[in-house]
């Protein structure tokens, strides 16, 4: 990692941890979503075990979406975004580094919380491992796809809701393959690796398309 990228990464991480503590709030939200589910569908443990992976994924998706609107907005408000744009560094790389730091601060806590929350949903050890693994691979894709929405709505004062609406359709494939690979691990209608590898591919695609598109959008938003 080159010097400036490392500096930027550490800066983002420090800001995310010190101010707002968005990672902790995201995990709290995740916990709240998971707690609400039994009230919605009833405390039937078999049912919960069956739909558990799906709800963990949906909870992670919602928690990621909630934290994303601050990805570029804080930098725009205090002028850091303009400085980054003027610095002459590759904006695509900047976005990638920012997404990585954002994922470390908000996505990784969700992945770490997932096994604990999975116990509430009566998942078996194997299922817990599968869900955690798929979340580990899939949440970066959610952050990277969300970066597109975040950069498109960066100039809007209340862009959070619009961003969620724009990002959700794009995140559907990740959700589908995340849940189906977790399901595949539990009651194998298909081998686990097939959907899992497709989801890995989706994450890699997101790692290319996300930074490219959001760099274009950020440049347009600036001029």
């Amino acid at each position: 990692m080159t010097g400036w990228a490392k500096a930027l990464f550490l800066r983002e991480l420090r800001i995310a941890v010190r101010i707002g503590g968005s990672g902790v709030v995201g995990v709290l939200f995740f916990l709240a979503v998971v707690t609400v589910i039994p009230f919605g569908v009833g405390p039937d443990l078999n049912l919960l075990a069956r739909i558990g992976p799906a709800f963990l994924w949906i909870g992670a998706l919602l928690a990621t979406l909630l934290g994303l609107d601050r990805l570029f907005q804080a930098d725009r408000e205090d002028g850091a975004l303009d400085l980054i744009l003027m610095s002459g560094r590759s904006l695509e790389l900047v976005v990638l580094v920012k997404c990585l730091a954002h994922w470390m601060a908000t996505g990784l806590p969700l992945v770490l919380a997932a096994p604990v929350l999975a116990i509430f949903l009566n998942l078996e050890p194997l299922a817990i491992g599968a869900v955690t693994l798929t979340l580990l691979v899939g949440t970066p894709a959610l952050t990277l796809i969300g970066a597109i929405g975040a950069s498109l709505t960066v100039t809007l004062r209340r862009g959070g809701l619009l961003m969620a609406v724009l990002v959700v359709p794009l995140a559907i494939p990740v959700l589908i393959f995340g849940v189906s690979s977790a399901d595949a691990a539990i009651h194998d209608p298909v081998p686990f690796m097939t959907p899992f590898l497709i989801m890995c591919a989706l994450s890699l695609i997101a790692a290319v398309v996300g930074p490219l598109a959001s760099a274009v959008a950020l440049r347009f938003a600036a001029d």
Binding site: L152, L170, A213, V216
Partner: peptide, 21 residues
């Protein structure tokens, strides 16, 4: 335009994953 093109890239993927699902 950016969103439309990202969507155009994504539509085949969505179609494929919905078929799979």
């Amino acid at each position: 335009a950016v969103l439309t093109l990202v969507g155009a890239l994504n539509l085949p993927i969505i179609k494929f994953s919905v078929d799979w699902w």
